[in-house]
Design a binder for these strands. Sequence first.
DNA 1: TGTACATCAGTGAACGCGCGTTCACTGATGTAC
DNA 2: TGTACATCAGTGAACGCGCGTTCACTGATGTAC
Lengths: 193, 193
Amino acid sequence: MDTQPTRKELSHERIVETAARAIRRGGFNGVGVADIMKEAGLTHGGFYAHFPSRNALLAEALERAGRDSAERIEKSSALRQAKGASALRALVESYLSDSHLSSTESGCPVAALASEMPRQAAEVRDAAARRVRSLIGRVQNALTGRGAPDRAALIAGQLVGALQLARALGDNTEGKALLSTTRRSLLAQYDIT
Amino acid sequence: MDTQPTRKELSHERIVETAARAIRRGGFNGVGVADIMKEAGLTHGGFYAHFPSRNALLAEALERAGRDSAERIEKSSALRQAKGASALRALVESYLSDSHLSSTESGCPVAALASEMPRQAAEVRDAAARRVRSLIGRVQNALTGRGAPDRAALIAGQLVGALQLARALGDNTEGKALLSTTRRSLLAQYDIT
DNA sequence: TGTACATCAGTGAACGCGCGTTCACTGATGTAC
DNA sequence: TGTACATCAGTGAACGCGCGTTCACTGATGTAC
């Protein structure tokens, strides 16, 4: 029995959603409190009525980004499975898709932020570690019955790494080529279906 | 026939070296011009006699970091090969070593900075793309004769991704466990020697 | 149903601080004769 | 070998700007009677 969300709760939600996109787009250092509040349709002064600090928002936004992205990938993956792909193939094709390459802002926050994670405040690092564990867990789920659970970490790293290398080369021919090469090579290795 | 380096050239070198460590330690946004100059034993005012802009330094520092790290890994890898490891095993064990996990500052700049690369100025992004290509090239060299060249990109992504996930989990038991799990799993897959 | 008041959510100006960049200047090094 | 001057490399104060955070205030919403 959910109660009606208050006005404040709605604002809070909007701020977190905005921030979840902003950190993936601009990095942890790339967007300021004022920018996020403005994008959420508010003024920056009200920020501290919602969060004790900027880091608290970053931590919350990271979790939100992870859940959103997981859901997106889950959907895309389900579609591929409906067409006959195995769970693993569906996950790999979804994660290493051209569309994920270009939409950093709504994609996996681990891929978008991994190298910045170790440099954040403890609060944010904890949230980051949870996102990493969750990603590995999701790979694990797609792997059932297929090799040791050790492979989940290997494949998770591979997914994150490949996407990042492709993005570093650019959202262009070169990046897309790297991505499709890697995807093909990875699928050939683990999976047939 | 090298000529003696001038005083200015020596300073320039020192600044670039300092910056190459600083960006890996603190990220592209993590260290300022004044900090780097101070660490190099100079005052910040002199900076613009050496570089046209902060971004120009970042680009130069990135290249320097890449070369230094490649050399380090090459050495470590050569030692392992001398003990009988194949080129690929030697590279993987060097790259995914506990020591590389903890020494971000002197390690591979692609692993240290990958997710920040797409957000940099064109000047820096170009230098970043070169580092990515160079890393893939080095994996390729270690792969000779072993499967299609496509695999180089796959393995490069895997190396970078695994190190980043481990670092995101922390330089502790959990991070080290992830790293060794991945390393073992990767070696079991490609390589025997 | 209406009035009086308390609480809530958000506003906007201000704070201290650190940043990248500029610039007039200084002291050291090198060159000409 | 010594002197006079030009050039070089680095100094340190200052600039404009944007940031995270604080705070006194305002207008809207909810509650008591």
